[in-house]
Amino acid sequence: MLTRTASTFAPPVMEARRWLEGVEFPANRPLINVSQAAPVDPPPQPLREAMAQVALTDDEAHLYGPVLGLPELRAELASQTSDHYAGQIDAAQVAITSGCNQAFAAAIATLCSEGDEVILPTPWYFNHKMWLDMSGVNAVALKTGADLLPDPKAAAALITDRTRAIAIVTPNNPGGAEYPAALVQAFFDLARAHGIALIVDETYRDFDSRSGPPHALFQDPDWHDTLIHLYSFSKAYRLTGHRVGALIASQSRLAEVEKFLDTVAICPGQIGQHAALWGMQKLSQWLAGERDEILARRRAITDNMPKLTAKGWKLLGLGGYFAYLEHPFKERSDQLAKRMVRKASILCLPGTMFYPLGDPDGACQLRIAFANLDTDGIAVLFDRMAQL
């Protein structure tokens, strides 16, 4: 029998980094790394100074804190999320976690037993699939359409007596698709009708191109009977190394979440939580500028896409930090991605990392995480890809 960790695959980003070993990149063609959706710049200087002050002057920041997170941060996130979605969320319905991946892990721990099922649209976020594997939970693949949007009717056909949840990500990782409000509502209604949970991961919500609430789920006074909402502070405030995420759910579910978090980490990192709180209270204008920059880079993808379209490439999805492409070559995407390292000095992830083993769709797709490239860098990226 396999151990829990042996039941899943190697971390894709780490696997891709190993492709760089022994490769020398010429001075006129330095590496372009579009493999990981994480800011490479540190937090803005005022936030770093605030973090330093916490470290120097707040003795309690170096101790264990509340398992479900700092009360002030829970209250602030409840308030701002209520405003953002025009809904009603109480601080007691918020848990702070050590990153959004831990929020997903905690949610699954409260929902599933060995042999249960969770429906994941494909292409899926690989860490979700990995955690389900290591939890003994079957990930049921839900194929998406040409627009990378899943069909609730197709999902309904996959529900069994072992189904415990449907998990969606919007804006999507890896596909970039921004799920329309009506589609999110349809999945919520489907989950409620079958007595299962809907997990909505909105890690990239701060970079959604739309204005106003991206969906109306929190406007339902009983949202908590079905919805488990996940969020990350990492992308918004460049706090990836401090691991601060969040889970919003019913108070009864958070009582179960507390068991998981207390056992795994005892509490989220205190300094990171203080940083997230300071960012939420002080950096709204700065974050709006970050969003504008990401949207400008998204436009640069669209502007440069004709270079690839002429060579047979297709843009399948674009949003958040991601462009998701179909390539025109006969070789599988995992082989192409390795060739791109050697021949074009580009590191990206192949679609095979986002699908069940052997799925033909993944073999012809690539994910480009463009957030760390400026518009000039995106032009260079597309020039190199056009020459493959």
Rank of each mutant, 00 (worst) to 15 (best):
S7V: 08
S7W: 04
T8V: 08
A10P: 03
A10D: 14
P11V: 13
P12W: 01
M14Q: 15
E15D: 14
R17N: 11
R18Y: 09
L20W: 02
G22P: 06
F25G: 04
R29L: 14
P30I: 04
S35E: 06
A37Y: 00
A38M: 13
P39T: 02
P44M: 12
Q45P: 12
E49G: 08
A50W: 03
A52L: 15
L56A: 15
D58N: 12
A61W: 07
L63E: 15
L68V: 13
L68A: 06
L68K: 07
L68H: 09
E72C: 05
R74T: 11
Y85I: 01
G87P: 07
A91W: 01
Q93E: 11
Q93G: 08
S98W: 02
G99K: 01
C100W: 04
A103H: 02
F104Y: 13
A105L: 06
A105I: 03
A107G: 10
I108L: 13
L111F: 07
C112P: 03
V118R: 02
T122W: 00
F126V: 11
N127Q: 14
H128D: 06
H128T: 02
M130V: 05
M130F: 06
W131S: 12
L132P: 00
V137L: 08
N138A: 15
A141R: 00
L142H: 02
G145A: 13
A146P: 02
K153A: 15
A157I: 07
L158W: 00
L158Y: 00
A165C: 09
T170P: 00
G176I: 00
A177E: 15
A182S: 14
L183T: 11
V184D: 02
Q185H: 11
D189C: 08
L190R: 03
R192N: 10
A193T: 15
A193R: 10
L198H: 03
L198Q: 04
D201T: 02
D208G: 08
G212C: 09
P214G: 06
D220H: 11
P221T: 14
P221I: 14
P221R: 11
W223I: 12
H224S: 14
H224N: 11
Y231W: 10
T240E: 15
R243Y: 12
G245R: 03
L247Y: 04
I248M: 10
K259S: 13
A265K: 10
I266Q: 15
I266A: 13
C267P: 00
C267Q: 06
P268K: 05
G272C: 04
G272V: 04
K282Y: 14
K282I: 01
A288W: 08
A288F: 07
D292S: 12
I294W: 01
L295T: 09
A296F: 07
A296W: 09
R298G: 03
A300E: 04
A300W: 00
A300G: 07
I301Y: 06
T302D: 14
N304P: 04
N304D: 10
T309D: 15
A310W: 07
G312T: 02
W313Q: 01
L315R: 10
G317P: 05
G320Y: 00
G320S: 12
F322T: 09
A323G: 13
H327P: 01
K330Y: 08
K330C: 11
E331N: 14
S333Q: 04
S333L: 06
Q335P: 03
K338V: 08
K343I: 02
A344P: 00
L347I: 10
P350V: 09
M353L: 13
G358F: 07
Q365L: 02
F370L: 03
N372I: 01
D374H: 07
A379I: 03
A379P: 01
Q387G: 07
